[in-house]
Each structure stands twice: as C-alpha cells, then as structure tokens.
C-alpha cells in the first residue's frame, strides 16, 4: 500500500517525465498537427500534466536564453564537447617548475585558470581543431574568447609577455581582453594581426588573409614589419600575391557564421558552395560550370545543404539532385 502522499509524489514525477518527453518531441523539426492533437489530449488529461509541462518549458526557455553563457561555463571543462583540444603541451620552465605543475593541474581541472594568472606558469600551448560542420567556442584563461569556424585549427600559446594564436587555414572570431603588458597576436597566412583590446574576425585560406574588425583597433603586420591599422567596420583582404585591399563592411555580416548563417553580397554560387562544403559533412558539387558564377545576395541559414539549395533554387535557375557522393547542382 502506498500513502496518498507517496501517490502524489509519484504522480508528479510521472507527469514530469511525460512533460520531458513532450518537450523533446515538440522541440524538434517536423512537428505535425497530429502531434498537437495528442499533446492537447495529454495536457487536458490531468492538471499536474499542465503544471509539469509549464515548469519544464520555463527551464528550457531559460537554457535557450542563456545558451551562450552556459556554453561558456561548460566549454573549458567538458570533455564531451563536439571538438576537444587535440593536445595540451606544456614546456616546463626549469625556474618555474613548481608553478608550471600547478598551472597544468588548473588546466586539467578547467577551473582555476581564471584565478591563477596564466603567466605565472611557463608558456601554455593548446591546440584546437574543428572538422566539417563543427564550431567551437573557447574561453581562454585571460577572459578572451575565441570562436572557431568549421575546418579551422588554432594553436594558442600564452606566455608571460605575450598571448599568441597561430591560425592555420580557417576562420575565427577573436574577442580579446585588453592587456597592455601582454599583447595579443594572431599569426595567419604568414602575417601578424595584433590587437589592442577588441573583437575581430580572421579568415586565412592558404596565402590569402581577411581581417574584419568589429570593435577596437587592430594592426596587421606583414613580414616586413610595417603594419596597417584597422578601425571598426574596416576589412583588409590580402590576396596570394600580397596585394591588400581595404574596404568598409558591416561587421555583423562577417560575424554571422557564428550564428549559423552566412551573408553574401553578389558573390558567385561557387563561393557559397565552397563555404557550405566547409560547414557540412554532406558535400555539394556544381555539375554545370555555367551556373558557378551566378551571383548570390542574401542571408543563408545553415540548416542543411539540401535545405539551403532548396531555398536557392526558388530564386535561381538551378536544381539540386542528390547522388551517392554529393548533392549535385545543375541548371534547371
């Protein structure tokens, strides 16, 4: 026999379990009107169902609203994230061996790094890499933040006098905490991008480099040492031959990849396809060279390659046909 109190508790717990099932089911794509009818019947079946669902919904909305902050808290310590640092190498400084050990533990725990100034330890080197379709948010020990786009590799090395990030091919947004005593330097495409407390985006593709500044002041230096200073809203693009072009842009557009969308202004379809192929495992191919140059202007929401192409084919004379190895684009 169970007491009425126990009954009540188990009924509430049951309602909460069912509420979780409904939240999970209704939160995904492809919810139908029939799902709605079934949900309605469940909601009406018992007052505790409505209460449990409302409770679960409020919490889920809070997670939605704070997703970024929660991710920032999770990022350093969570081993189950989509991308993990592939190596954390520590150069032991003989003089500061003791501190180096403490620093290593702090990084292993993923907690104390904010408390213990990183420069007390020897230089810390961590490598982060993303694959196709992966994004990675990295909170660095000094409060600076790094957002890696798909297929990007960054080697972060912090030492007493300098914070340095080497960016191989790929794209990243840097949100840098200003520290006059420790400049923040990004190495990309054979050049150095030096910031003065700011937010900026670096895209490196073999020998080409694009730097866009949202906030603060950034200096891009070549191998010769003479630098170009960039203010907010300015973009510097340097091509393979080393020719630079300065333009005014809306930084929000450049930064939009972090938000799951890409913005294009009269850029050829081939560029869009190249970007999609970095963002998704499923590859897209242009079968007809005549359509490669079609200009694209607009915002592309990154849900799936087939969904993107379905929307594009409404505006352009193209057709997407799935095949074994890729989504093939042809003229319609």
């Amino acid at each position: 026999m169970t007491s009425p109190m126990e009954n009540l508790v188990s009924r509430e717990s049951q309602a909460l379990a069912e509420a979780g099932v409904w939240i999970a089911r209704l939160a995904d794509e492809g919810v139908s009107g029939d799902d709605g009818l079934e949900f309605d019947a469940w909601l009406m079946a018992a007052p505790q169902n409505r209460a449990a669902y409302s409770q679960a919904l409020v919490l889920c909305h809070e997670f939605d609203a704070r997703a970024e902050a929660v991710l920032a808290e999770l990022a350093p310590a969570d081993p189950g994230q989509t991308v993990v640092p592939i190596s954390v190498v520590r150069r032991r400084s003989p003089v500061r061996g003791w501190w180096a050990g403490v620093g290593g533990m702090a990084i292993a725990a993923g907690l104390a790094v904010a408390v213990l100034p990183a420069y007390l330890a020897g230089p810390t080197i961590a490598t982060y890499a993303t694959g196709k379709g992966q994004h990675q948010h990295i909170a660095l020990a000094d409060g600076s933040k790094l957002d890696l786009d798909a297929e990007t590799k960054a080697v972060v090395s912090y030492s007493r006098g300098e914070r340095r990030v080497a960016l191989s091919d790929g794209q990243a947004i840097f949100d840098v905490t200003h520290d006059a005593a420790r400049p923040f330097v990004v190495e990309a495409a054979g050049r150095q991008v030096r910031d003065l407390g700011t937010q900026f985006d670096v895209k490196a593709k073999s020998r080409e480099l694009t730097v866009t500044v949202a906030r603060g002041l950034v200096e891009v230096a070549g191998t010769s040492g003479r630098g170009v200073q960039l203010a907010p809203g300015q973009r510097l693009s340097i091509d393979k031959s080393g020719v630079g072009r300065l333009s005014a842009v809306d930084p929000a557009e450049t930064f939009s990849w972090r938000l799951g969308r890409l913005v294009y202004r009269a850029q050829p379809l081939a560029d869009v396809v190249a970007d999609l192929n970095r963002q998704f495992v499923q590859q897209t191919e242009i079968a007809d060279p005549a359509i490669a140059g079609l200009p694209i202007t607009g915002v592309i929401v990154l849900d799936s390659p087939s969904a993107v192409m379905a929307r594009l084919s409404l505006m352009l004379p193209i057709k997407a046909v799935p095949s074994d190895r890729a989504l093939v684009l042809t003229r319609r």
Binding site: A67, R215, P232, P251, G260, R261
Partner: peptide
C-alpha cells in the same frame, strides 16, 4: 529569425561600427 538564427544574439552582442 529565432534565437537559433541568431537575431537575439546579434542584437545584444555584436557591435557595429563605432565604440563599444
């Protein structure tokens, strides 16, 4: 755009030209 599309984050986080 919903939050997933980033409108909300765009509004509160991204700085446009100018100061902070």
């Amino acid at each position: 755009a919903s939050r997933r599309d980033g409108q909300w984050r765009m509004d509160t986080r991204v700085t446009l030209a100018g100061l902070d």
